[in-house]
Nucleic acid binder design. Structure first.
Length: 269
DNA sequence: ATTCGGACCTGAAAGC
DNA sequence: TGCTTTCAGGTCCGAA
């Protein structure tokens, strides 16, 4: 499912609902989601652990637990957390894992495609190979320029080791706003183009967080509700519709296995 | 050394 | 109507 804004929305919801709660039990019918530990071992370890902190890094959710443990969840394409009660929605019916909490409530993970990843680390062993957080104030324009590497700009923006958190929706939306073609080489962009991309990145990610993310497909917040950024998106999954800026027909093109959506008229190669 | 396709899964939507 | 193909907010791995 989720890119930075969706994961951020999830983390905000989790902080509100499950911070300082203790896990009393866990259930799954999809043991393969547990990657660096067997499910029986995970179950033994997680019982009685208190959630001291919850934060996002890139597209990862990290629960900082008592006894020096970190629970890491990556929701991949279709994973999303649901707390206690949620809307009756087909996308919320693929419950693969249930965490039982000490207040009698359930924190569930719905994941249609079963790609999600759940791992348990000792806090000191948790190492994520990720680039800077795009919304951090300290990530200024100079730093942005310096992290860029050779390659098509869309793929560079989506490379988690360069910048953490941007995926297919937001790279398309950022490049449309910046009027830059997705296949331009990141290292051959003009100063003006780079400035437009940098600004669009901050604007769009902030706006998407404010709107609770994008729910065109599977993503829901932890109460099962949809985010609203999808309503105002300009190009993502809008192939053959009109560009809202110039009226040209939006194109879709395969780029490294993913679909890039762009306006061929205002994003010239 | 990069890049690309395939794998991992399931279901909705579009095509025939 | 029903069967087939394409597509999906991600990442990893191995072959060109």
């Amino acid at each position: 499912m989720p890119e930075l804004p969706e994961v951020q929305t999830t983390v905000l919801g989790l902080k509100k609902k499950v911070l300082n709660r203790t896990f009393v039990d866990v259930w799954t019918d999809t043991k393969k989601l547990f990657k660096n530990i067997s499910f029986p071992d995970f179950k033994k370890e997680i019982k009685g652990k208190k959630i001291k902190k919850i934060y996002r890094r890139g597209k990862n959710i990290i629960f900082d637990l008592s006894d020096g443990l970190n629970l890491l969840v990556h929701q991949k394409m279709t994973g999303h957390f649901l707390y206690d009660k949620w809307e009756n929605d087909p996308m919320n019916s693929f419950i693969r894992v249930k965490f039982f909490l000490d207040n009698g409530k359930v924190l569930a993970l719905s994941d249609l495609r079963k790609f999600a990843k759940i791992e348990l680390y000792k806090t000191k062993d948790l190492k994520l190979n990720l680039g800077p957080e795009p919304l951090e104030k300290s990530f200024n324009f100079d730093k942005f320029k310096n992290v860029l590497k050779k390659g098509k700009i869309k793929q560079v923006l989506m490379n988690q080791e360069i910048i953490a958190g941007i995926g297919n929706i937001y790279s398309d939306e950022i490049l449309w706003q910046a009027k830059v073609h997705p296949e331009k080489d990141a290292l051959k962009l003009s100063e003006k183009e780079l400035k437009r991309i940098y600004k669009a990145m901050k604007d769009i990610l902030k706006k998407a967080v404010d709107l609770g993310g994008t729910s065109i497909s599977d993503y829901r917040d932890i109460e099962g509700k949809k985010g609203k950024f999808g309503d105002i998106r300009k190009v993502y999954r809008r192939e053959s519709q009109k560009c809202p800026r110039c009226g040209a027909i939006i194109k879709r093109k395969k780029l490294g296995g993913r679909s890039a959506h762009f306006c061929p008229s205002c994003q010239k190669p």
